[in-house]
Design a protein around this nucleic acid. Structure first.
Length: 603
RNA sequence: GGGCUCGUGGUGCAGCCUGGUUAGCACACUGGACUGUCAAUCCAGAGGCCGCGGGUUCAAGUCCCGUCGAGCCCGCCA
């Protein structure tokens, strides 16, 4: 494949010793300049690499080159020459040659830069977003975005090889109940009515199954009006959305695990990837053992329930809490008994900052416990503690006490903190697991009502019978997540394709039959004309790339991300629109009172 | 909506805890020197309402209050 064009004969990453003695014409950005007064070097950069160009003093090109600012776009013509011995640069693939410039034209002079492209120093997020086009030139972000493209291409190829067909589904669609807030788009033709951007193509993919396409996938944009997090882009993100007909949960697992494993292996670059089948952890077990429904299995620590060790003991803080129904959880710090006192104090301080009650601990040596609360634990209790937790002499055991479900997350954070501080997190590894058997319903703590805990379209385990005969809070769904290194990559389910079960499922969550008809009429109707059992999932593309790129912030793998306030600082979105546009949409603004001295947030 | 952290020339940081000379360093920028560098080097220069407002004080980048902005977290995320 030749990348030569009307403006260049070669790319900046192409020339080698074999080209020496031939003419070449390059185009690119001035990455660096080294001016020796009568000899000047330009590192010319494009997406393919960097090539050193030499401009000799006294030539017309020299005067132009001296005045060049970094990041200007230039074109150079000249001869490819082998560098003199000792002058090669082993750091560059093109480092054995250079281009002796005979003509140089400036295509686009750059102003003084607000952020430096040729350096990896950190710049404020606001500057990076406002000048995203410059940030994208920088090596790290540039590499990430190219990686993203390659990952998506790999996913597409693997999905097609697995028998899936790619579809597009509407962007302007209808609002879906449950879930996050929708982004709404006003209709000009239908005053007072709105489209919603899809939070996911959920209903469309189920309709495609009902339409008999058997295996659907899409690199699908999803829109949710929710606040951002480091691993969650506000506004919009992409999913590998897929769905399969005539499948059980086992079939879905067996199909998608090799795809994900294959993609990760392809781009792991030396890092280990846990092979399928991925371990399965029930939702309940995940909360107790890992304190999270997205456990990081690179962390070898697990959480133990040690209520019985403290029940009726002299340590009244825990003993009394246990009587009230609280729970005590423990995490072992291997070899942590030797840590200095400050380690334990800092951990306790950290716990308080996390709005935990303090973090209790004992250290173990020769079957005896030491530490502030050790005196409350007799020999039997210490022995029991060691049996339950597997702790041995030289270890320390840390305790937190609270009600469920608070204690789960608190213990989970303690597990993470200890794993990190004790250096136990396995490096250079991708550890996958399935989280299975999610509860179908959960109780809203504020209102006391029962609602869907996840996807309302999931098939309840046990079907109609379970819904009719069991306590809803004990009913599990065929609902599953894929988790990798503590990041939730994907949520999926075997769907409920039976209208009778769907009405019952929604009835338990407080929806009347008419409500369900009104809101999901299209899909319900489809299920009355022959619907295959089906299920799928939707791994997050951005998060997959984030993991593979080794980034901890999702903006680093998105070419044009919004900031945490869901603003695009480069394109200045959202923005006000002219009154006449509002008028034809039949929209009148009712803005909140704004302080008169507050500056406008529009730049 | 709430919590924490941060805000100092174009940019990255120091100075703030413990108030007191001309606000320091690096990169970029401008001018000069230099024929083999590859983060070129050397010399010189320009560039700061220390986010904004108020307060304490003889004196505020520094202490206090408020406010605006950014990041992270909680809420939210079927």
């Amino acid at each position: 494949m030749s990348l030569s064009t009307g403006h260049r004969t070669h790319t900046c990453g192409e020339l080698r010793v074999t080209h020496a003695g031939t003419p070449a014409r390059l185009a690119g950005w001035v990455h660096r300049k080294r001016d020796h007064g009568n000899l000047l070097f330009i590192d010319l950069r494009d997406t393919y690499g960097v090539t050193q160009c030499v401009v000799a003093g006294g030539t017309p090109a020299f005067a132009t080159a001296e005045s060049l600012r970094l990041e200007s776009v230039i074109m150079v013509g000249g001869e490819v020459v082998r560098r003199t011995p000792g002058a090669e640069n082993p750091k560059l693939p093109t480092g054995e040659i250079e281009v002796a410039v005979s003509d140089l034209t400036v295509e686009s002079m750059a102003d003084t830069l607000p952020l430096q492209v040729n350096s990896d120093t950190e710049f404020p997020e606001e500057t990076r977003l406002r000048y995203r086009f410059l940030d994208l030139r920088r090596e790290r972000l540039h590499r990430n975005i190219v990686l993203r493209s390659r990952v998506i291409a790999s996913i597409r190829r693997r999905m097609i090889d697995a028998g899936f067909t790619e579809f597009q589904t509407p962007i302007l669609t209808s609002s879906s109940p449950e879930g996050a807030r929708d982004y709404l788009v006003p209709s000009r033709v239908h005053p007072g009515q709105f489209y919603a951007l899809p939070q996911a193509p959920q209903q469309f993919k189920q309709l495609l199954m009902t339409a008999g396409f058997d295996r659907y996938f899409q690199i699908a944009p999803c829109f949710r009006d929710e606040d951002g997090r480091a691993d969650r882009s506000p506004g919009e993100f992409y999913q590998l959305d897929f769905e399969m007909s005539f499948v059980t949960q086992e079939d879905v697992f067996a199909t998608i695990a090799p795809v994900l494993h294959g993609v990760f292996e392809e781009f792991a670059d030396g890092r280990a990837v846990s092979p399928p089948p991925f371990p399965r952890i029930t939702y309940d077990e995940a909360l107790v053992r890992y304190g999270s429904d997205k456990p990081d299995l690179r962390n070898p620590l697990v959480i133990h329930d040690v209520g019985e060790v403290f029940r009726g003991s002299g340590f009244s803080a825990f003993a009394q809490a246990l009587e009230r129904g609280d729970v005590v959880r423990a995490v072992v710090g291997p070899k942590a008994a030797a840590q200095p006192r400050s380690f334990f104090d800092k951990l306790n301080e950290w716990g308080r900052a996390q709005e935990m009650p303090g973090v209790g601990y004992v250290t173990l040596a020769d079957g005896a416990a030491k530490g502030p609360i050790a005196k409350f634990l007799d020999e039997t209790r210490v022995a029991r503690l060691m049996t339950i937790t597997g702790a041995a002499g030289g270890d320390a055991v840390f305790f937190v006490c609270a009600k469920r479900p608070t204690v789960d997350t608190v213990a989970g954070r303690l597990r993470t903190k200890l794993g990190e501080d004790l250096g136990l997190i396995e490096a250079s590894t991708f550890r996958f697991c399935w989280i299975v058997d999610f509860p179908m319903y959960e109780r809203d703590e504020e209102t006391g009502t029962i609602g869907f805990s996840h996807n309302p379209f999931s098939m309840p385990q046990g079907g109609l019978d379970a819904l009719e005969t069991r306590d809803p809070l004990t009913v599990k769904a065929y609902q599953y997540d894929i988790v990798c290194n503590g990041v939730e990559l994907s949520s999926g389910a075997i769907r409920n394709h039976r209208p009778d079960i769907m009405f019952k499922a929604f009835e338990i969550a407080g929806y009347r039959r008419e409500d369900v008809e009104a809101r999901f009429g299209g899909m319900l109707n489809a299920f009355r004309f022959g619907a295959p059992p089906h299920g799928g999932s939707a791994p997050g593309i951005d998060r997959i790339v984030m993991l593979l790129a080794g980034e901890t912030n999702i903006r680093e793998v998105i070419a044009f991300p919004m900031n945490q306030q869901a603003q695009d600082l480069l394109m200045q979105a959202p923005s006000e629109v002219p009154p006449e546009r509002l008028r034809e949409l039949h929209i009148r603004l009712a803005l909140p009172e704004r302080r008169a001295d507050a500056p406008s947030r529009q730049p």
